Simulated assay, not measured.
Amino acid sequence: MRRTERYPVKGANSLWQIYKTVSFWKVFKNTAIILIARYTPFMKVKNSLYRTFLNMEIGEMTAFAFMVVPDIMFPEKITVGKNSIIGYNTTILAHEYLIQEYRIGDVIIGDEVMIGANCTILPGVSIGDKAIVSAGTLVHKDVPAGAFVGGNPMQIIYTKEEMEKRNRENF
């Protein structure tokens, strides 16, 4: 089970009530910063924008590829370790708005993690150090450190121990 806080709503669906949960001006500012960063080819500039204006925790030498979308409403709930790669067009969500409730959860991505292109990371998950997430994966649960995962739904393809064995055999 993902680690999210649940907030029930009454009446219209939770997304219809968005500005009761988060300030319009915060969403407006975050949207502008994310749009600028999505198209910025300079990693240091991107990371600086995310740290300064979105309050994201990002480790040194981490690279966000072209078109990555961090959560627009709660980017401060995202932590990425050092020397990680977030692949092209990946979306990192820290919220989900449902019909009768909305949920918010921290996303923690470890050190030296490789996330392939076109992934979606749902709120409340943790991706362990040195894990590899295959392109196109829906990360809906925690990823153990050193594991290689992929698919929709996400499955463990190789554990850390199996990956280490494969690496030893290939060298």
Rank of each mutant, 00 (worst) to 15 (best):
N55K: 12
N13S: 12
A135H: 13
A63N: 12
N55R: 06
E161P: 09
I99Q: 15
K130N: 14
A12F: 07
M163A: 04
D106K: 13
P144F: 10
S126T: 09
I121G: 02
V139D: 01
M67V: 00
V149L: 10
T91R: 10
I104Q: 05
V125N: 03
P41C: 06
C119V: 07
A94K: 00
P70A: 11
V149F: 09
F24P: 06
T79R: 11
G81V: 04
L54M: 05
G124H: 12
G11F: 05
V107K: 02
G59P: 09
A94R: 00
A63Q: 09
W16Y: 15
T120K: 13
I36S: 05
L98S: 08
V9G: 01
R38F: 00
V22E: 14
G150H: 12
E5G: 02
F24Q: 11
N13L: 04
I109N: 08
A117S: 14
P123I: 13
I108V: 15
L98Q: 11
N118D: 11
P123S: 11
G116H: 09
E76Y: 15
H95W: 06
D71G: 13
V149I: 06
V139Q: 09
F64E: 05
S14Y: 06
V149Q: 07
N167I: 08
R3I: 12
N167M: 13
I72F: 10
A37F: 02
Y19S: 00
G150K: 14
V133K: 07
K141N: 13
N118V: 00
L93V: 01
D71F: 08
A117W: 10
T40P: 02
T90D: 07
H140Y: 13
E162C: 06
S14V: 06
A37W: 02
P8F: 12
M73K: 04
L35G: 07
K44G: 10
F42M: 03
K26T: 15
E112P: 01
M114T: 03
T52K: 14
A12I: 06
I72C: 10
K10T: 12
T91G: 06
M114N: 04
K160M: 04
V125D: 03
R38H: 04
L93K: 00
E5R: 10
E60V: 03
R166G: 00
E161K: 15
Y7R: 03
E96N: 11
A145I: 08
T62M: 03
N30V: 02
N83Q: 07
C119T: 04
I99M: 15
H95E: 09
T137I: 07
I86E: 03
M61Q: 13
I156D: 01
A37I: 02
K77N: 05
I92P: 07
R51E: 13
S134E: 14
F66R: 08
A147E: 02
